[in-house]
Amino acid sequence: MIRHSRNLIKLQSVRYASTKGKENSATENLRLGYLSDAQNAYMDRVIRVDQAGELGANFIYNGQYLALSHKRPDLKPILKHMWEQEIHHHNTFNNLQVERRVRPSLLTPLWKVGAMGLGIATGLMGKEAAMACTEAVETVIGGHYNQQLRVLTNQFHVDVVNEETGVNTPTVPEEIKDMQKLVSQFRDEELEHLDTAVEHDAHGARPYWLLTEAIKLTCRGAIWTAERV
C-alpha cells in the first residue's frame, strides 16, 4: 500500500517535471513510464547516504572550527566558508529527504558523534592535521559523488512511449537531470574544498599516510553502512 502511494507520488513528480517548459503538442501524446523499483531503491539510497554524508561533513567542520578557532583565528574565515557550504548541502538533502519521503540513516546519532569527534580531534592535532582530514574526506566524497553521477547518468532512463506511433525512446526525466546537476555541483564544491585544504599545507601533516588512509577507510565504511542502514 505504502509502496503504491509512493510510486504515485513519484509518478506525479516525474510527469510534472517532464512537462516543465516543454511544448504541449510534444507532451500530450507521450506516456511516461514509472521509475522502476531498482531505480527508486537507488534514489532512496542516494538521498539517504548523501544526507548522512553532508551531515557528517557539517559536523566535521563544526568540530574543526571549535577546536581551531581559539588557537588559529587566522583560519576562522576559511573554515567558516567551507562549513557554510556544507550547511547548505546538508539543508538541500534534508529537504530532498522530506520531499521524497526517504528513510534517513538509522545511525544518524552515531554519525553526529563520530563526525564531531573527528573534527575536534583533528582540529586539536593542528592545522595540518585538520587540513589533511579535510583532504581525505573530500577525496572519498569526490569519488563517491562521481560514482553516483555515473549511475544517475547511465541508468535512469524511463520508457517514454509516443502514443500515436508506439515508439519508445527511453529518456532521463527532468527531475533526475536536476539531481545530476545538483550532485555535479556539490561534487565540484567538495573538490574545491580539497584543493583549498591542500593549499593550506594538508601534506604537511604528520603522520600523513596513516592519518589520511585511516580517515579514508573510516569514511568508506561509514558510507557503506549509511547506504544500507
Binding site: 531503491a41 537507488y42 544500507r228
Partner: peptide
C-alpha cells in the same frame, strides 16, 4: 531495496 540498489551501482 538494498539488493536492487547494489545491482544498480
Amino acid at each position: 531495496d538494498i539488493r536492487l540498489a547494489d545491482k544498480m551501482e
